[in-house]
């Protein structure tokens, strides 16, 4: 047996794994790709062990150990993935951006602070903040790259707007199907609207929030929601709102609320229903 054959096979498998790791965005698919890379290692090890006639069987033993390590990693990894899914309702790596470095990290630290009444400001702040991060980035992405070409087209028919008398209008991001499990929206950043956003920081009754949920940030009470710390500046937020406005085809969408994380089980289902109703109607 020429050892080149297994070696080349191993190199090919490894490269395929590399591609998978880089190209996939579903965490579980990334895991699979890593498994491919580990298998490439294994075949190398076994082939070399056989070739060298290692009396200590270092290669094959390491292979066994790598298999076990892979299994252990996978166990823990899937547990983590499930935990993420529990908290974030997504396993897309691209969307796990709460901790990511903002595009304008040196923000004005107290930008939102001045806009809300003092005693409740912190709540409002967290609400605004948690509402903003991922949605913002995605909106920004779309606006800047436009690569998700279908976004605007799919978004418009499913738009839902509350009656015009409301200070806030809801809009669900259904641009991409997988994204609909997150209700997007943004607490209004100007003063009075922030006021409307903040009182409902507790968990709203699932049904009751059908109309106002998108703006009232249903998951502020969640342990996760309050801790989001991506920091948008006011300017950034307004820019984002402009983007949103463009997407709603001229409609003046003033606020979009999003449950950034963990929205799914608590507030999201009503919201989605609401949104879909609105979309159809």
């Amino acid at each position: 047996m020429h050892i080149v054959y297994p070696s080349v096979l191993s190199a090919v498998l490894f490269s395929i794994g590399v591609y998978g790791v880089l190209a996939r965005r579903n965490t579980i698919l990334v895991l699979m790709s890593v498994e491919l890379m580990l298998n490439a290692v294994n075949i190398n090890l076994v082939a070399f062990d056989v070739w060298l006639g290692d009396r200590l069987h270092g290669g094959q033993v390491l292979t066994l150990f790598v298999i076990v390590i892979a299994a252990a990693e996978l166990g823990v990894g899937l547990a983590i993935v499930l935990a993420v899914f529990r908290n974030r309702a997504t396993v897309d790596i691209d969307r796990l951006r709460d901790l990511a470095e903002g595009p304008d990290e040196p923000y004005a630290p107290t930008a939102p602070a001045s806009e809300a009444p003092a005693p409740r400001r912190e709540l409002a702040e967290t609400a605004v903040r948690s509402a903003n991060s991922p949605a913002a980035q995605r909106a920004g992405d779309r606006a800047s790259t436009g690569s998700r070409g279908s976004a605007g087209a799919v978004a418009s028919p499913t738009e839902a707007t509350a009656p015009p008398t409301d200070t806030v209008e809801a809009r669900a991001e259904t641009a991409e199907p997988a994204r609909t499990d997150q209700v997007e929206g943004q607490a209004e950043t100007a003063g009075p609207e922030a006021g409307t956003a903040e009182p409902v920081t507790g968990q709203p009754p699932p049904g009751a929030s059908a109309t106002e949920a998108p703006t009232t940030e249903p998951t502020v009470g969640e342990p996760t929601a309050g801790e989001t710390t991506t920091e948008p500046t006011v300017r950034e937020k307004t820019a984002r709102e402009e983007t949103a406005g463009e997407e709603t085809a001229g409609e003046k969408t003033r606020a979009t609320g999003q449950s950034a994380d963990g929205g799914e089980r608590v507030g999201e289902q009503p919201d989605t229903r609401h949104v879909r109703r609105g979309g159809k109607g």
């Binding site: 965490t27 823990v76 935990a83 529990r86 974030r88 901790l99 969640e222 801790e227």
Partner: peptide
Amino acid sequence: RYDGRASEAAVKLFLVSIV
């Protein structure tokens, strides 16, 4: 476990580490 940021951190650490 009920902190989305902790899970997110874990997933990032995990993926980077196993790769």
